[in-house]
Write a protein that binds this DNA or RNA. Structure first.
Length: 476
DNA sequence: ATGTCC
């Protein structure tokens, strides 16, 4: 993007001042280098979001932002339901509650290295992955409804994990307000055999080690020290979330004339949050959140089973689980007033600052751990929220490296087998169901994660706790 | 992201 269209606020904040239909400014958190790399369409999409009814504060984009369906991925849009504010299926994303959970293992990097190949094979055998993959769990219609209502709580009730896991999951593992009756039978049918599966694309299951600790106190609160091995799981709500997105995009688009919202872009289909359709979507989307939480909980159980076979001394305990594709009702101060607002985070991670009441008590001083996954083979980070991020970004930060190259271009530029062999030479063991997928996920197709993190912390909306490097990666 | 175009 051309920097001249922005008003530079700080080294890492750039504003598009309101013009035309924009109701609020657009603000991009990024370095000048990252902003120059960003597609022009991110600016166009941000201006479109800033023009939607009832938007509050500013339409925001994170340093990892790239073009998405309607809203940018790496975008935040906050709306006031009491004043005509909208909810948008494209503002949440198709993979509802896609997110990352990270577990301590009680093991050191060296413990993994001795069994690296065997562990990679065992994890790949235990956790189904790839497009259309199914698991060993078959749910009846009533079981699906229970799962959609209770999320990871349902999973733990059925033997997949512990109360301690729930205590370290966003919303305690259960998103309230889910209404499975608003989820189509098609969506439920698609999910029937897909619980406990990783999916495809940028989803992964990795064993990583802590390469560097930046914040000793916070790392200690999270139970981590240099050299520790961790497991990170990145996946979402599979076919169910995708179908909810598809169903409600069509319904919202059709209802826009009735709601008096002009259709400037079909991808920006939305409904007043207070309308019947808006409430129906909220009930369905929250069911999708619970599906993703249950899915990551079941995968955690499968990972524990895999470790028990190869490294029985491992003790996998959940540090935290946080989503980066959601719309949540939260209280924020805007224009000097506390309001209940609907916060769309699409490819943006919630990050609570130290002292926030929603934190598990042992993280009260450190703040919420937020997991930022790099591209395949590159570093991942644990960050924590700041009060500035709460005030200026509705408690939201980036979610990953962010694509720099389209999937199509990446597929034409790289060969999956070569990508995997190159990473293997660097000591990273990949197991994948798709070489084509591996080409699309080549590290070179993504932005530099270190640059994204430095821009996020430079803007003071997060602070660094640890950096991790992968040892094993199971990839859809 | 996705039964990657029912």
């Amino acid at each position: 993007m051309k920097l001249s269209q922005f008003k530079q606020l700080t080294d890492f904040r750039w504003e598009i001042e309101p013009y035309g239909d924009m109701r609020v400014p657009g603000i991009i958190f990024a370095s000048a280098d990252l902003l120059r790399q960003m597609e022009d369409d991110v600016g166009r999409q941000l201006r479109a979001v800033a023009s939607l009814p009832g938007i509050r504060g500013a339409a925001l984009a994170m340093p990892d932002a790239h073009v998405g369906y309607g809203f940018p991925i790496g975008g935040i849009g906050v709306f006031d339901p009491a004043e005509g504010g909208v909810i948008s299926a494209g503002g949440v994303g198709f993979d509802i509650a896609c997110g990352v959970r990270c577990l301590r293992t009680g093991l050191h990097r060296d413990d993994i290295l001795t069994v690296q190949e065997e562990l990679a094979d065992t994890l790949f055998a235990h956790v189904p992955c790839g497009v259309g993959s199914t698991g060993g769990i078959r749910l009846s219609t009533s079981e699906i409804d229970d799962m959609l209502k209770d999320g990871a709580k349902w999973a733990v009730r059925n033997g997949y994990g512990t109360q301690a896991d729930l205590d370290h999951t966003e919303e305690g593992g259960r998103m309230p307000g889910a209404d499975p009756s608003q989820v189509s039978d098609t969506a439920k049918k698609r999910q029937r055999d897909e619980m406990g599966t990783l999916g495809s694309g940028n989803h992964y299951l990795e064993i990583q080690y802590v390469e560097e600790v930046f914040d000793e106190k916070a790392a200690t609160a999270y139970g981590l020290a240099e050299g520790d091995a961790v497991v990170c799981i990145h996946c979402g709500s599979r076919g169910l979330g995708h179908q909810i997105g598809t169903d409600y995009l069509a319904r919202m688009l059709k209802a826009m004339p009735r709601h008096g919202i002009p259709v400037t872009d079909r991808e920006l289909a939305c409904a007043p949050a207070a309308s019947e359709l808006g409430q129906d979507y909220l009930g369905a989307m929250r069911s999708g959140i619970n599906c993703a939480l249950a899915n990551r909980q079941i995968i955690t159980h499968l990972v524990r089973e895999a470790f028990a076979e190869v490294l029985p001394e491992a003790r996998l305990s959940l540090i935290y689980d946080v989503s980066h594709n959601t719309c949540k009702e939260e209280t924020h101060r805007v224009d000097g007033r506390e309001r209940r607002l609907l916060v769309h985070r699409k490819g943006a991670t919630r990050a609570l600052p130290p002292g926030h009441p929603s934190l598990p008590h042992e993280y009260a001083k450190a703040g919420q751990p937020a997991f930022i996954g790099g591209s395949m083979g590159t570093a991942s980070y644990i960050l924590t929220g700041t009060q500035t991020g709460m005030d200026d970004a509705f408690g939201s930060i980036c979610h990953g490296a962010g694509r720099a190259m389209s999937r199509k271009k990446a597929k034409a530029s790289f060969r999956g087998r070569e990508v995997i062999e190159k990473l293997h030479r660097h000591g990273i063991h990949i197991r994948t169901s798709s070489y084509k997928g591996a080409a699309e996920e080549a590290p070179e197709a993504y932005k530099d994660i270190d640059m994204v993190i430095d821009a996020t912390t430079g803007a003071d909306i997060a602070s660094k706790v640890t950096r991790m490097r992968p040892l094993v990666c199971v990839k859809g």
